[in-house]
Nucleic acid binder design. Sequence first.
DNA 1: AATGAATGAGGTTTCATTCAT
DNA 2: GATGAATGAAACCTCATTCAT
Lengths: 237, 237, 237, 237
Amino acid sequence: MPQPPGHGPGYETKRWEIVDLAAGLFARKGYAATGINEIGEAAGLSKGALYYYIGSKENLLVEIQGRVMLPLLGTARRITALDADPLLRLRLLSESLLSMIMRRLEYIWVYEHDYRQLGEENRLRLKQQRDEFEAIVTGLLEEAMELGLFRPMDARLAMLQFLNLHNHTYQWVRPGGAWDARLLAREYCATLFAGFATGGTAGGGSIGGLEERVLAFLEAHPELVLDPSDDLSGAAA
Amino acid sequence: MPQPPGHGPGYETKRWEIVDLAAGLFARKGYAATGINEIGEAAGLSKGALYYYIGSKENLLVEIQGRVMLPLLGTARRITALDADPLLRLRLLSESLLSMIMRRLEYIWVYEHDYRQLGEENRLRLKQQRDEFEAIVTGLLEEAMELGLFRPMDARLAMLQFLNLHNHTYQWVRPGGAWDARLLAREYCATLFAGFATGGTAGGGSIGGLEERVLAFLEAHPELVLDPSDDLSGAAA
Amino acid sequence: MPQPPGHGPGYETKRWEIVDLAAGLFARKGYAATGINEIGEAAGLSKGALYYYIGSKENLLVEIQGRVMLPLLGTARRITALDADPLLRLRLLSESLLSMIMRRLEYIWVYEHDYRQLGEENRLRLKQQRDEFEAIVTGLLEEAMELGLFRPMDARLAMLQFLNLHNHTYQWVRPGGAWDARLLAREYCATLFAGFATGGTAGGGSIGGLEERVLAFLEAHPELVLDPSDDLSGAAA
Amino acid sequence: MPQPPGHGPGYETKRWEIVDLAAGLFARKGYAATGINEIGEAAGLSKGALYYYIGSKENLLVEIQGRVMLPLLGTARRITALDADPLLRLRLLSESLLSMIMRRLEYIWVYEHDYRQLGEENRLRLKQQRDEFEAIVTGLLEEAMELGLFRPMDARLAMLQFLNLHNHTYQWVRPGGAWDARLLAREYCATLFAGFATGGTAGGGSIGGLEERVLAFLEAHPELVLDPSDDLSGAAA
DNA sequence: AATGAATGAGGTTTCATTCAT
DNA sequence: GATGAATGAAACCTCATTCAT
């Protein structure tokens, strides 16, 4: 803990405000491109006073990451421990995650974007927490497979699909817009659960034979995907 | 009359190498956190010589963005113009996109991460190209709905799901690992196509009644998602 | 509530010293040829501390221009408003201008030499102030003509003669030398007032017929002024 | 001479063009603020080729100074040697000088502005030439005094008035405007010759008693010229 | 609890010049 | 005669951080 001992009563409040403010600035311009000066100006504090509260620039980043990761992990732990079927729990996790994304969008921007700017120690700790979160999701998906609610599949890949779908949302979502966390959770889970339940690659149904047609098509038109022998210089041409 | 001064034959080659190198550094550390010095050292060039090739740091960013966006857009245009059913074209687009992500992962990192560091003009141009790409995806999804291959749904939300699933992949994928672009495209499309074809929110099937149970559950355990009245200060407690 | 961050009491004093110092360096070497490093060394400040005071190099130039132009314009306004005949006011203006030149010679060097290095905005503002100064001089000269103290003449050309005579003085004057501002003002005004009162081009008196003789002479010896058809290459020969 | 031996026939021509071009650029932006790159671009030459012709940046400056000073001095020598009265010769010198200013305005800008950027050796040589020019003017003025055409006065101060009036003209004159060299020479000489002939400080005539009134006025209103005890900090107030 | 001042390293970019080809 | 490429120093400026008061 960087702060010296013996802070007054307003210390934590002010510190909180500054972190909040920094989250907004970091979200907009990126951590590395935001100066301590800007934060000080936004907070109406001289640099000396600012450092009294924050200790260092990286501390701000650490704090922001924590304010995303800790509640997220806490909720995930609580949800996974519920006595309910895995689909319900995944659906609750989905809403919880999207709710965090929409309610703390600026924190999420920083969390998703700038975690690589953390020092080694902090980065490792964050990584462990992320791993735990991923493990929780994976566990729920495996439960659903074991119950036959989902077809057998690579659980890790399923987890990554789940997280891709949710975690990229911050890039375009507008809190206060037409779509709230509940709606998005409903839609995402509808897609995923149906997708994970039926079909699959071998699948029949309406998309039967799709993969065979893809192969045939690509054999005829290899230029439709990037040529694997492309040395990248083709882009300029 | 002598030809006006310009650049020699090796210029573009060297320039290419430098951009490639910069993409790697930017991907690892972020654009703003990467210094011109590092690029120069990596390229074995003095700062002066480096600027002879790059003009400015932002030029590097622009070039990187272009080397992602332009081939991507070109392929998307060619695919959407194909005489094939929309599912096949979406599947081809998926593989093409994932192929780009895997083959130019460092470029993609920069493309996804640092587009906001572009100057206004360049950022606008890039935005238009991204919009066109999104419009192509949306169009294919709408075709599939009209043919009854997908249930009726918000096409824009469907497009965003499609792109979330694909575009977040760069965060964890390892080229040369067990999963190649084709496999991922197959899995992603399997999920999406099945999800978009059946069920949906109102849905029956195996997840019938899920939403009702969610509501009941959340009423009993409101702490399972972030409390909407949370002023964020709860996270620290 | 603490006062918002700002500058301490010694700030303006130090800033003043730095500007003064910069004026000396700019005067000696020219604005563009003087580096920020030199100023920092002269001031005994690191570059960071220097910028704490100056903001930018151009700010120094702006400040220097202002410290010449503003008092000059203020004095000119006060003088022109006096209830006294125009010759007296011109004579006062002359001494005031020369006094400024001699007492702030280094500022004047920069003012006369480097105003073109100002950014567009600052250059325009300065231009307006210079125009006002010129208008004041022109007005006084016109008053003198209307009173019959000066012969009728092009007032603008008279103003330019007045200013040529004064403003070029900085190039050779040595403060502390034999000539002070009062002496120079007396001499310049004696020359100008007598010159503007009598004679003129058509003139009789001692220089009667001079122009006719000039024409005759130049017809006989056209090489005495630069040949108008000279393509400049003759100088090298 | 910086150029290596054995140049082709076009060498001098091209060199001439480049110097001319550089004079234009230097005049507009100042010597120090103009880059070699700009000159190369303007000339359509690569930097290597440019250096083949110019040797160094300072060489350009030396050349420009020479193209002003040498013809000026040559003409002045020829004029002063004429068998004609000193007023006529001064009048011819005036027109010759103004003709140079108007016909080579860009050279004059550089000549007047940037002579201090010359290296020591070149600056000294130029100084000697300027001194000779001043001596010629001083000599003519002394002749006029001896003949009784001018009142007795400080010849050096008279010379400086003559040169102030002429040499500052480049700051505002527009070649091709309403005033040509002849007109300006006529006006300047009319002013100077009348001013130098009559009156003077002790003078009677129309401005009798002016200096006494000035002294009285300044005693009553000392703020009308810069306060000699002004420590410069008054300007900010 | 907070301030203004200072630091020193580093940021991106431009400079005049050289030289092998 | 002329080129493109390279250099290394220097340009102006901003950085995160510290500290006496």
